[in-house]
Design a protein around this nucleic acid. Structure first.
Lengths: 202, 202
DNA sequence: TCAGCCATGTAATGGGTTACATGATTGA
DNA sequence: TCAATCATGTAACCCATTACATGGCTGA
């Protein structure tokens, strides 16, 4: 099945979407690698989270390609820093990427589901505890999103980020609902008649 | 914010969940790397998909740790192969991982949402086309899941995989609904009064 | 007064991907 | 008859993560 590649018939350097994430954030203004990291956390972090050090190397790469410029700032109390600014070429590259029809397929890596998949090999009680913990975490994330939603409401310049947030909200709500059902089902199974259960359509 | 690490105060080799995914699949019986790849596609592939070559290196690693054994099979018409079988130690390691409370946090990497986040930099029409395409794909995946659901229904040994599948179904349904709303909103905006829109609570 | 966070990054290492090989079989 | 798929894997490379550094500030 050999996953299709996405750096193919286009630019030879073939930037991946991580680079564009950072390039996109640079449209917010000139900033340091550290600033980019902070911005990532508050914006695209929930569906795209490069490690700090990768941010720095991506920034250098963007400079190398002419998509950003760098200028060094000496500081005394803080470590020196480099400020990056997107160039016209960079903006053009961003737009080109946005408009291109090929989108890299999403990647989901969810260790919890992996555990559940193999849960036949673990004690029932342990599983229940883990589902509860998962549920707790999902609810927590959901609350954070709802808070964000209130903040973004009616802010016109946030229109697209708001739509993205809606996707996150929908996802988390669906996972909370799901986890509740799973938990109920598992707890039901703990009591009494556990040998006659089956995946029947309710 | 420096992501917390998950190979910390435990076994020095510190296997990541990818290794356990493969170890878990080996509980289904002795098989080749190629077989593991096939199984991945049909089982955990939607929330965990290592590349082929990684499967091979993980298998070798598992052998090195004593969690699996390898035996070579000569073949004439096909390339030779190596068959891997989980060991008692491997089963124990798997169980230990399953029971441990720490779960690695999930990773979501969704380039489409990234594009949407920055969609202010692209033409409205292009965006609409891309949302449509995304919607189409989500529906396709959803149908595949629904098919799988029918196949797994009432199969008792599929109880946990069935629960996992439910998570996938819930997720995809939520994303289809979301995409439909987004599309409606965007199309509404194309016609007429586009300058007065805002993220108001409906 | 001391742990922890702010602020800024670099170095080392590993996880994971795409590209490369090979020969038989099957469907259009 | 020719491309696609099955069947099996290796080699090369890059993306990404965790660990390491450093010094001032801030809250308990």
């Amino acid at each position: 099945m050999d996953k299709i590649g996405f750096a193919r018939a286009s630019d030879p350097p073939g930037l991946a979407s991580t680079s564009f994430a950072i390039l996109g954030l640079l449209t917010f203004g000139e900033m340091s690698g550290y600033d980019v990291g902070k911005l990532v956390n508050r914006t695209v972090g929930h569906f795209f989270s490069p490690a700090k050090s990768q941010i720095y190397s991506e920034l250098r790469r963007l400079v190398g390609l002419g998509f950003a410029t760098e200028r060094k700032i000496q500081q005394e109390d803080r470590p020196n820093k480099r400020l990056y600014r997107i160039t016209g070429e960079g903006e053009q590259a961003l737009r080109q990427w946005l408009e291109s029809v090929d989108v890299e397929p999403p990647v989901y890596k969810i260790p919890f589901l992996l555990k559940l998949f193999f849960a036949a090999h673990m004690p029932h009680e342990t599983l229940i505890a883990q589902v509860k913990e998962e549920l707790r975490q999902s609810r927590e994330v959901l609350e954070g999103f709802e808070e964000l939603e209130r903040e973004m409401q009616d802010k016109d310049e946030m229109f697209f980020p708001y739509l993205v947030l809606q996707a996150g909200l929908a996802h988390n709500r669906s996972q909370v609902d799901w986890a509740e059902k799973v938990l109920a089902e598992l707890e039901h199974r703990s009591h009494g008649h556990d040998s006659s259960a089956s995946n029947r359509k309710d």
